[in-house]
Design a protein around this nucleic acid. Structure first.
Length: 616
RNA sequence: GCCUCGAUAGCUCAGCCUGGUAGAGCGAACGCCUCGUAAGCGUUAGGCCGCGGGAUCGAAUCCCGCUCGAGGCUCCA
């Protein structure tokens, strides 16, 4: 049971509306009490009569100290995240009400939304909180949970000239998505009434689906989805390796009782999957940090080796997000995360690296087909870091080219002093982070990562945590949400050409041209272009339609004319035109548009009659 | 955790209010058509109406419970 106890001059509350089935039957009239102790109470799972008695005796004892005899029991759910069932809670409230003979006890109605006006006295004992359990072991609340509730954020918008504006004074006229982001982050307004449109598309395009036999948020990827994922993974990995990242692979599960993990969890409790195995308490990683830090600890490092960049594509990272937060590909419990850490010798080097990685992230996001207008940047830092590094922050915001949402903390609570993200804003105005980088001043020590400096002294590095793309699944979500927007606004949806599961479809007018189509497909395949053939004996109209609904970028219809001529009529999805090109022109055009992007083979049979129908 | 909604053919859904032989489109199989840039035609197969109970002569339909799923909310306590 959680109790927040306030000694008040007065409280006035009004039941507004019944909120749950168990709401008690009362006349919803306002009630005012003066000179009263108000106990806001959340009854938790496992609470019983003993707890009720204990709570009442503790409350009455403390009321004696402040010399007050009037008590209001006020049901208040927000104090706990593991509430008892309403029926249990209600009966415990009634029990508590009846327990005390000396006190004048009033109870606020249970199950109602209530408005209230409260005036709390200012003396030292006026405000206290208690956690009461049936006995045995009291719940261990980590420092982090306590601290997190105290953390206070100050929100601003920084314009590209480095000026900070209060959020409510900023003119969002040309920055609607930034306004969405600011509202989403700074306020608690997150309610929408429809599922995001990418969910339907991810099924319809046979990319991914829920797997009921697994846990929620663990998706299955069909051939199309697997291909798109592979391409994105390859692209991001290549970019990070160009930047200097060394790719490694580390375990997906770790011992919760390893000292570094214990220290980490104590400070940053997370929702992780736990597995008991042979007496060990293992957990599934929610980031690549663990494996990479433990690896870096075992390296012998000199300052000459820094910055040291380790990279891993985690397939998967696991986070046991609350079931209600999981939606399509936006937020998953198992996700694929490119994660690149850089161990830097000091803040100067960290800042230099930070700049490079910002540029890398911008480039990667662009390469993935996400435009500047699709995302908004947020940057977060401690006040101290801001005062000492104004120019770095202002320069970064300037590079972004558009105003940025700022969150500033008075004190450092997290392990980082600076963090930024690009937030994709979807069709419902919901924001989710893609690229991100952080400057971490704490984990070098926690994981005993050391390098030897110029003076032969061991030092802990500053660590940057960068994902240039964000979770790969989330990138697909962003692309699908963009496609949904195109559909809504009357444009043809499409994937970037390099990600299209099939880039070219060849359709014979009659079966007698099928063999020619196959030869042509063979030739195009030789240039590492994904091409397939509609070998079904369907009408041309039907085949075109099916190719269009598959978002195929180029459609070739082959008949008598083509078999004997050089030029082909090619339906180009992007321009919407049918144009006359030779096959070499087409190949050149595709190669030009997919330059610098990874190449992969078709992930389904070339003949579409051989493919299973994926009906989901 | 809590709330809401949902579960009928492989898929999307109708039927439920007002109880009386299980419906459509797509997809699949088979056949006809041999076709020039977004759906050619026909035939056939395919159902424990999520599970369990109740009331009823009779339940996909009404009542109760459960399971699973989706979405939303951490608002409610």
């Amino acid at each position: 049971m959680r109790i927040l106890q306030l000694h008040c001059d007065s409280i006035e509350f009004t039941p507004v509306k019944k909120e749950i089935e168990y709401a008690e039957e009362i006349e919803p009239t306002a009630k005012k009490l003066e000179e009263v102790v108000v106990a806001f109470i959340a009854v938790e799972d496992g609470d019983n009569s003993t707890v009720a008695k204990k709570a009442m005796s503790e409350i009455s004892e403390s009321m004696k100290k402040v010399g007050c005899n009037r008590l209001l029991l006020y049901p208040y759910a927000h104090l706990s995240s593991k509430l008892a069932s309403p029926s249990t809670a209600f009966s415990i409230f009634k029990e508590m009400e009846s327990l005390s003979k000396e006190l004048e006890v009033t109870r606020a109605p249970f199950g109602w939304t209530k408005s209230f006006k409260i005036h709390v006295k200012g003396h030292p004992l006026a405000e206290t909180s208690k956690t009461i359990t049936a006995g045995e072991k009291d719940e261990i609340t980590s420092d982090a949970v306590k601290a997190e509730s105290k953390i206070e954020s100050f929100w601003y918008i920084m314009s590209t000239d480095g000026k900070m504006h209060k959020v409510n004074e900023f003119d969002f006229a040309n920055h609607q998505n930034l306004e969405f982001l600011a509202k989403y982050e700074a306020s608690k307004k997150r309610s929408v009434d429809a599922p995001p449109p990418h969910v339907k598309l991810m099924k319809k395009m046979a990319i991914a689906d829920y797997e009921p036999a697994s846990d929620s948020g663990n998706m299955r990827f069909f051939p199309n989805g697997r291909l798109i994922k592979s391409l994105i993974e390859r692209y991001v990995s290549d970019k990070i390796m160009d930047y200097g990242g060394m790719e490694v692979e580390t375990p997906i599960m770790y011992d919760s009782h390893h000292p570094s993990m214990e220290s980490y969890f104590h400070r940053f409790p997370a929702r992780q999957y736990n597995i008991d195995s042979e007496g060990k308490k293992l957990f599934l990683r929610f980031a690549a940090c663990f494996g990479q830090f433990l690896m870096a600890k075992d390296f012998q490092l000199s300052y000459k080796n820094l910055p040291l960049k380790l990279y891993e594509l985690t397939r998967y990272s696991f986070r046991k997000e609350q079931s209600g937060e999981l939606v399509g590909l936006r937020r998953l419990r198992a996700f694929t995360m490119p994660d690149c850490h850089a161990m830097c010798k000091d803040m100067e080097q960290a800042k230099e690296e930070f700049r490079k990685r910002f540029d890398l992230s911008k480039e990667v996001i662009k390469g993935l087909g996400i435009d500047e207008s699709d995302y908004e940047m947020a940057i977060r830092f401690t006040e101290e870091f801001y005062n000492e590094n104004k120019s770095l922050i202002e320069e970064t915001v300037k590079k972004n080219g558009r105003p940025v949402l700022v969150e500033m903390w008075k004190e450092r609570f997290f392990y980082f002093v600076l963090k930024w993200e690009f937030n994709f804003v979807d069709n419902l105005g919901k924001a989710s982070a893609l690229s991100t980088d952080q400057i971490d001043v704490e984990n070098g020590k926690r994981y005993n990562i050391e390098y030897i400096d110029e003076n032969n002294k061991p030092q802990n590095p500053i660590i940057l945590h960068n994902s240039p793309s964000g979770a790969v699944e989330r990138v697909i979500y962003a692309l699908l949400e963009k496609a949904a927007k195109d559909i809504r606004e009357g444009r043809k949806p499409q994937f970037p050409l390099w990600l299209a599961p099939s880039q070219v479809r060849i359709i014979p007018v009659k079966p007698e041209y099928l063999q020619y189509c196959e030869q042509l497909a063979e030739k195009i395949t030789g240039f590492e272009i994904r091409v397939d053939v509609d070998d079904r004996n369907e009408s041309v109209g039907k085949s075109i339609r099916d190719a269009e609904t598959d978002w195929i970028p180029y459609i070739l219809v082959i008949g008598e004319k083509e078999v004997s001529a050089e030029k082909f009529s090619i339906r180009d999805r992007k321009s919407g035109n049918v144009k006359e090109l030779t096959i070499d022109d087409l190949i050149n055009e595709i190669k030009e548009q997919t330059k610098g992007k990874p190449l992969m083979k078709l992930n389904m049979d070339r003949d579409i009659s051989k493919r299973p129908q994926i009906m989901v």
